[in-house]
Each structure stands twice: as C-alpha cells, then as structure tokens.
Design a protein around this nucleic acid. Structure first.
Length: 571
RNA sequence: CGGGGCAUGGCGCAGUCUGGUAGCGCACUUGACUGGGGGUCAAGAGGUCACAGGUUCAAAUCCUGUUGCCCCGACCA
C-alpha cells in the first residue's frame, strides 16, 4: 500500500475528552473517529488491525473445533420473552417498532439466537459437542461509555457458544475455549490473567474473565501474591479467609451509653478495640423488602455476593424512609431483637464472639453480643468484599493484591439456563429427553485492540506487536518524489517486501522526513526501512525496529534489505 | 439515573464578564525555498458562533427553553 493513496490523517493533538492512552493514540493515528457517545467509525488503519485480530481469533476458534456463523443484530423481542430476559436484562434492551409495529430489539448478546440455531438441529447426543462462533456487532445502550474503544455502546464481539450433552462435555468445551483464549491473547501481545468472575446478567454458574492488568482498566481484580498460588478473582467474586479472634467465653450482654457515637470506628476507638470487634448493621432493600445486613465492622458488604445469595435480586441501600416504614430503628442499629427473616449475616459476624453492636436505641450500644444467643439470621453466607492484604482463601499463606484490569474476555458455563428456557433438548443414550449444557465465550475485538495499545506504547505512539499492526513495515523514502535514485530503491524494496508476503506501507507522500518518522512511530509500525540520499551514501537502506531508539538504525546493502527487515520483524 | 462541566472552521483554543466588522495555533490549497524527527516564507480557501424562542437600533456575548458531548458517581456479558 502506498501512503499517498491511503487514508492516514494523523494529528498532533488528541481530542480533549480522550483520557486513556489508547483513546489518544487511536484517534491521533486516525484509527477511529467518534460519531456519537460510545459509537465510532473505524477508519482504514483501525480496520486493518481489527482484521488481524479477527483472523487470529478465527484461527484459534477453528482450532478449538468451533464453526463460524453469523446471527442477526436486529431480533424480534419475542425471543427475549422466551428466554425471560426481555425485562430483566441490564442494561435495558434497545428497542424499536418496525413498520408493522412489531417489537424489535438490537441484540446486546446472542444466547437467544444461538439457542434457536442449536435447537433446530440438535436432536441427539450424537450431535454434540457443537461449538459455534461469530464476530458480530452488539449494541448495549449502557448509560455511560468511556476510554475510546475500551467501553462503547456499539461494538464488535467474537462470541462463541458450546452445546454439550452433559456437564463433563460442557467442562471440556469450556477448557478448550479457555486454552484458545490464552493463545489469542498471547498472539495479540497481551499478558492477561484468567480470574474467577461473577456471571452477572448472562446467568449460569462458573465464569472466568481474562483481564489485562492496567491502570486504565475499570475492573478490580485480586490475585494471590504467593508464587505457588495462582488464585485470582474479580472483586465481585473474590473470596478470602476471614481472620478470627481467639475463642472466648461468652460474656453477658451489657447495654451502655454512647452519646454522639455514630460510626463503627468511633465506637471501636471509644472502647479501645479494633473495628473487627464490632458487628455493624446496614439496611438494604431487596425485592421490595428491607433487610438488616450484619457484617463484622472491619469488612464491607460485597453487593454482588449479596445479590447472588438473595436469589439474584438486586440489592440497594435502603433509604431512611424505607427503614422507618419497615419499623426498624434508625440509629445505633443491630440485628438484636429483629425477626430473623429480615436479617442477613456475613459469616464474619456469626463466628466471632462478644462483639460490640448497636442497641437499636439512639445513643446506646451493647457489649458481648453473640450470634445464635442474642440474634439470628435466616440468611447467612459469604457476602464480604475482599480487599488488598486479605488472606488468600485458596492457599492460606498468601495475601491478596488488588489491581485495575481491562476485561478483554469472559467465559461462562451456562449449564441449562437457556436450553431449559428455550427448549434446546436432545435424546440421551438411554432415550430420555434432556436439556443441552451450554457455555458462552466472549471477546471484545475493539476493546482488545485498545487493550493492546494500553499495554504496548511509548511517548511517541503505539508499539504494536507484528501480529496486529496495520502494516508490518513502512518503507520511508526521504524526498523520494524528486530524487530518482531514492525513488527507485524505495519502490524496489517495496515491491520485494510485498512479494515476500509482508504487509508493507510505502510512505511516498511529499512530506518532510520528520513528519514521516513521527507518523511511523505514532501508528506503531513494527519495522521501518529508510531510503534516503544519506542512507544510500552510507551503503544502502536503514532498517530499525520500532522498539529501538530513534537514531539507532543499521544500514544494509539494498540486496540484503529484505532479509534485514524479515529478521528485524522476527526479533 | 444523580452531581459537575463544555458547545466558536477538520482538530485544539481565545473572544462572552462589560452587546457594536468573528480571531489565533495546527491541519488544508497554490507557489517558492528546504530535505534525517511534525522545516521556512508568501498568497489563499474554509465558520447559519449547537438549536429554538425572547430582549435590543444591534446578540457568539444578555434572558428562557431544548439538544449534544465530556468527567465523577450509580450501574455494567
């Protein structure tokens, strides 16, 4: 490709709203252009990179035994009613009426459509495993987008789905996809961690996300610091080993005055103990009912764990009005004296003894409060949020470290959630009719491109790995438009590289050398070959890798330049 | 959805307080010079000042409303 005939419109300045590195460079290098909030044009350079990413994904999906298909972006709302997600999907579906006033949705994901494809042909256990994937546009009318391609409303995703006859088959599909994902990310130059995750509104049981650890990410990920432990989890899911106070003899409950004390920390310090010796109570409204949620004072409630424990109903902090209407005391609250039906307890508050707690009376607290004797709860479980420094629950000798991460992939074991709802059934070996075990597996291609830039850049621009760069090498002809010798050498090298199957860009624009170098660096050309009067005088053509310093190029005779570029690219 | 901010040529901005000929840098066009890290000079082109109403002799500027976009939070396969 000749730069003079291509659409490269680099700029010195990024739009003021671009905050992340990838957003700035993708815009400055003219890979993308914003059309509306969270909606982008992908320009020729961006499209080339995305095509390389798509092809890597295709190869790995095909290797994992998946078949490529495509499913509609515009779907009848009825299939979402069939799955039960028409009204529960969060964020809400983008909907419209077609010309005959039929209700349509813009698909944010394709479990419904693939279930329809699956049930068409799967009638026997012999039809499975079946693995399907597509690379397709999704629309999610999320209330907020950010970070350029890191989080958008309309985006492209590779989504794959597996159909298996039993749990063992589903697990095998899941493992095959996980392996393919590792291959994809490493081929794209990304060092990602696979961590346990919550499955959210997709449903199902086990899920794992692939996260690039980066400050610009919006995910919070915890990993075990121990070298011998590979535990990692999204904050929503992360477990930790709770500390315990030494067992004590249960003391008598003592009520005492605490004028002016409003917080757990103030209470703990007034008593000369740490907040771990307190049981704090928080009010949540879940499915229209107000609950007292009790957790040890040094922990925080993880609302995702709380939601999962309470049957998937979304919890939110109760308003003072709701608390009052439910008849709960507003100040100095605790679960003491509350009907256990409306009490939710984290295990931390149930295991430790002789805790400080509210007296359910303004200005008074209680000493030596104990679960089982002084209060009880119908709902007890792990609803505590893990934090940096907490002890790893997996190995018990490491501590959790907290990171920011970009979620570039997510895989789920759906079990039979969709096959039950959408009637995807088959006859098993014994002749019985059973629901198919499904899995689903997603990678955001645009987000992957952005993440690759977050992970690979310097102050001059993008530093693409060869595998996903729009071009592999740029041949820069310095002043080539009015210097025959330079032009002939540059054209000849361009031809030879192209013939060798290398994606080559010939920068034949009538720009000064400075502009060409700056653009090559900004766009992230992995290799650069320079033909100029100066290089010819010193023996030929300069070849340099993007990672080498700007002035650190080696000169090769014209006949050796192709080999030099190839060897430079594979370094 | 809550809070905050912004809207003037393709991009980045000044001008708005105090109403009176729309300006700067980058990019663009033409020419000349230049030619190793976004070069110089000269001459140009390009803007219903987000939209709608109002006040006024006169509105980018003042008033009212609307829309779009950004940031923080809530939320988020």
């Amino acid at each position: 490709m000749r730069a003079s005939q291509y659409y490269i419109k680099t700029t010195r300045e990024a739009p003021v709203e671009a905050e992340t590195v990838s957003h700035k460079y993708l815009t400055r290098a003219s890979f993308i252009q914003q059309v509306a909030a969270g909606i982008f044009n992908i320009m020729p350079l961006g499209w080339r990179s995305l095509n390389k990413i798509r092809n890597i994904i295709r190869e790995e999906m095909n290797n994992a035994g998946a078949l490529e298909v495509t499913m509609p972006v515009v779907q009848p709302r009825s299939i979402w009613e069939e799955s039960g997600r028409a009204d529960t999907y969060v964020p809400p579906l983008a909907q419209f009426l077609d010309r005959r006033e039929r209700e349509m949705v813009l698909a944010p994901t394709h479990e419904e459509a693939v279930s329809i494809m699956g049930r068409y042909g799967i009638t026997s256990y012999r039809d499975m495993p079946l693995r399907l994937y597509q690379i397709q546009t999704k629309f999610r009318d999320e209330t907020r987008s950010r970070g350029g391609l890191l989080r958008v409303r309309e985006f492209e995703m590779k989504d794959a789905y597996s159909f298996d006859a039993d749990v063992a088959g589903m697990d095998a599909s899941y493992d095959a996809m996980a392996e393919a994902y590792h291959n994809i990310f490493s081929r794209c130059g990304l060092d990602v961690v696979m961590v346990e995750a919550d499955s959210g509104s997709i449903g199902g049981k086990d899920s794992a996300e692939f996260a690039l650890l980066a400050e610009s990410g919006e995910d919070t990920v915890l990993t075990c610091e121990s070298a011998s432990c590979d535990y990692g989890a999204n904050l929503e899911k992360a477990e930790f080993t709770q500390t315990r106070n030494p067992a004590e003899v249960l003391g008598e409950v003592e009520r005492f005055a605490t004028p002016g004390i409003k917080t757990i920390d103030a209470l703990a310090s007034a008593e000369g103990v740490t907040s771990a010796r307190t049981a704090k109570a928080v009010f949540y409204t879940i499915d229209g009912k107000v609950y007292v949620v009790v957790i040890r004072g040094d922990y925080e409630v993880n609302e995702t764990k709380l939601r999962n424990m309470m049957g998937g109903n979304e919890p939110r902090l109760a308003t003072p009005e709701e608390v009052e209407a439910a008849g709960f005391p507003a100040g100095s609250a605790s679960a003491v004296g509350i009907d256990s039906e409306f009490v939710i307890a984290d295990v931390s508050a149930t295991k430790d003894v002789n805790l400080l707690a509210g007296a359910n009376e303004e200005g008074f607290h209680l000493r030596n409060v104990n679960f089982g004797r002084d209060w009880s709860a119908d709902h007890v479980g792990d609803i505590a949020a893990a934090k940096e420094g907490h002890q790893c629950a997996r190995c018990d000798n490491g501590y959790l470290k907290q990171h920011r991460g970009v979620e570039v992939g997510h895989i789920f074991k759906l079990q039979t959630v969709y096959s039950d709802a959408m009637n995807v059934k088959f006859n098993a070996v014994d002749g019985s009719l059973r629901s198919v075990y499904m899995g689903c597996y997603g990678i955001g291609t645009g987000r992957l491109l952005a993440a690759a830039i977050e992970a690979n850049h310097d102050d001059r621009g993008i530093v693409f790995p060869r595998s996903i760069a729009p071009f592999e090498v740029v041949v820069i002809g310095v002043n080539m438009h009015n210097n025959d010798e330079v032009r002939n050498e540059a054209e000849s090298l361009y031809r030879q590289l192209s013939d060798a199957g290398i994606d080559t860009l010939l920068d034949d624009r009538a720009e000064g050398p400075g502009a060409k170098f700056a653009d090559a660096d900004l766009i992230g050309m992995p290799a650069r070959a320079v033909v100029s009067p100066r290089s010819l005088k010193s023996g030929g053509i300069e070849v340099k890798h993007r990672r080498q310093p700007p002035l650190d190029a080696a000169v090769f005779a014209p006949g050796d330049a192709v080999d030099a570029v190839i060897s430079c690219l594979s370094s």
